[in-house]
């Protein structure tokens, strides 16, 4: 039987590692729209981490800002410029 605390903290550690992978793809990706999607995935994992680290107030402000408003601002700005990053 696994200790529940270890299980929850293990989920948090996995989320943190997965967020690093999402950051790598967001940095490498040349298609800016896909980069924004990777950034939103990283934000979702961060929201899970904040919840596991017992900061519900931060989760409630992080979810709408980092998953909803921030990708939307960046997508609006990409629609005003170019979709592909030049090498």
């Amino acid at each position: 039987m696994i200790d529940p605390q270890v299980l929850v903290l293990g989920i948090g550690a996995l989320a943190a590692l997965a967020s690093v992978v999402a950051v790598y793809f967001a940095v490498i990706e040349r298609n800016l729209v896909r980069a924004v999607v990777f950034s939103a995935i990283q934000s979702t994992l961060y929201a899970l981490l904040y919840y596991i680290l017992m900061a519900p107030d931060i989760v409630l402000v992080y979810v709408p800002v980092a998953v909803g408003l921030y990708p939307a601002v960046i997508l609006f700005l990409i629609s005003k410029t170019e979709r592909e990053e030049k090498p």
Binding site: P56, D57, V59, L60, V61, V63, P64, V65, G68, L69, A72
Partner: peptide
């Protein structure tokens, strides 16, 4: 509900306002 219960449960004015701004978006 986040904004009106901000003094009882996690949440508050900024959290509620940022959530509500997703709807017009």
């Amino acid at each position: 509900s986040i904004a009106l219960h901000g003094h009882l449960t996690p949440g508050g004015g900024f959290q509620g306002g940022a959530t509500a701004a997703v709807a017009p978006l």
